[in-house]
C-alpha cells in the first residue's frame, strides 16, 4: 500500500472514468476529478460541462494560442471542440439545478455514512467560498466523490458523522478512494469493490464509518 500520491490519484481517477457512459454530460471538479478527462474510454463521447458557462471543454491550448476569454471553472485556459457551446452562469446552473447533468465528480475533505459531504471549509483557514459545489451536489443526477481515503495524518475521511461544515445533505452516491469503491444504498454505506492489492482488513482498519460489505466483493482491475 505504499503508493505515492500520484499513483493513488491515478488509481482512483482510472476507476472513476469507468463510471462514464457514452453521451453523458459531466461536470468535473477542480483538482483530482479534472484528471478523469484523461481516461475517457476510447470510442466514448462524453461532454464536459464547466459551470462558468461552457459545454464541450477541450484540452489545454498550444502555447501561444491561449485565449483570455476561454477558461474552465478552475480559471485555466482551455480550448473549444466541434459542438462546444457557451452560455451565461444562470443558464449553466439551470442545467445543473434542473438535473440535466448526468454526473458530477468532485473531491471531499469528509464524507459520512449518511452520504453527507464536506468539502468547502478548511478548518483554521479563511473561508474562500463554496463556488458551485453546493448547487452541483444538490442537483446532479449522480455525485461521485474521488478522494484519498485518509488525511495526511492517517485519519479516515469516511466518517460516522462529518465534523466540518457540510456542502450537501445526503448527496453522495459513490466514493472512490485508493482502498475501495463505495456506494450509498438504503442499507447504508457499502463497500462494493476493493482496489487492486488491498484487503478487506485494510479497508476496515482505515475506515471510521460503519461499513457494509457487498456479497462476493471483488477487486477492481484498472
Amino acid at each position: 500500500m505504499a503508493l505515492k500520491d500520484t499513483e493513488k490519484r491515478e488509481l482512483i481517477v482510472r476507476r472513476a472514468a469507468r463510471e462514464l457512459r457514452d453521451g453523458f454530460y459531466v461536470n468535473l471538479g477542480i483538482g483530482m476529478p479534472t484528471l478523469v478527462a484523461n481516461y475517457v474510454p476510447a470510442g466514448m463521447e462524453v461532454i464536459l460541462q464547466s459551470e462558468n458557462g461552457m459545454l464541450g471543454i477541450g484540452p489545454f491550448p498550444m502555447a501561444g494560442t491561449e485565449d483570455a476569454d476561454l477558461i474552465n471553472a478552475g480559471k485555466e485556459t482551455v480550448t473549444e471542440l466541434p459542438g462546444t457551446s457557451f452560455f451565461s452562469s444562470a443558464d449553466s446552473f439551470a442545467m445543473i439545478r434542473g438535473g440535466h447533468i448526468d454526473l458530477s465528480i468532485l473531491g471531499a475533505m469528509e464524507v459520512d455514512q449518511e452520504g453527507n459531504l464536506a468539502n468547502w471549509m478548511v478548518p483554521g483557514k479563511v473561508v474562500k467560498g463554496m463556488g458551485g459545489a453546493m448547487d452541483l451536489v444538490a442537483s446532479a443526477r449522480r455525485v461521485i466523490v474521488t478522494m484519498e481515503h485518509t488525511t495526511k495524518t492517517g485519519e479516515s475521511k469516511l466518517l460516522k458523522k462529518c465534523t466540518l461544515p457540510i456542502t450537501g445533505l445526503k448527496v453522495v452516491d459513490t466514493v472512490i478512494t485508493e482502498l475501495g469503491f463505495f456506494r450509498f444504498k438504503t442499507e447504508g454505506l457499502v463497500l462494493e469493490e476493493l482496489a487492486p492489492g488491498v484487503t478487506l482488513e485494510q479497508v476496515r482498519q482505515f475506515t471510521a464509518a460503519d461499513l457494509k460489505i457487498a456479497q462476493g466483493v471483488k477487486t477492481w482491475q484498472n
Binding site: 451565461s88 452562469s89 446552473f93 439551470a94 473561508v127 458551485g132 453546493m134 448547487d135
Partner: peptide, 12 residues
C-alpha cells in the same frame, strides 16, 4: 459567500 448557482439565479 453563497452558492454560485444561487448567486446567478438571485441576480436573474
Amino acid at each position: 459567500l453563497i452558492p454560485q448557482g444561487t448567486l446567478a439565479e438571485r441576480i436573474r
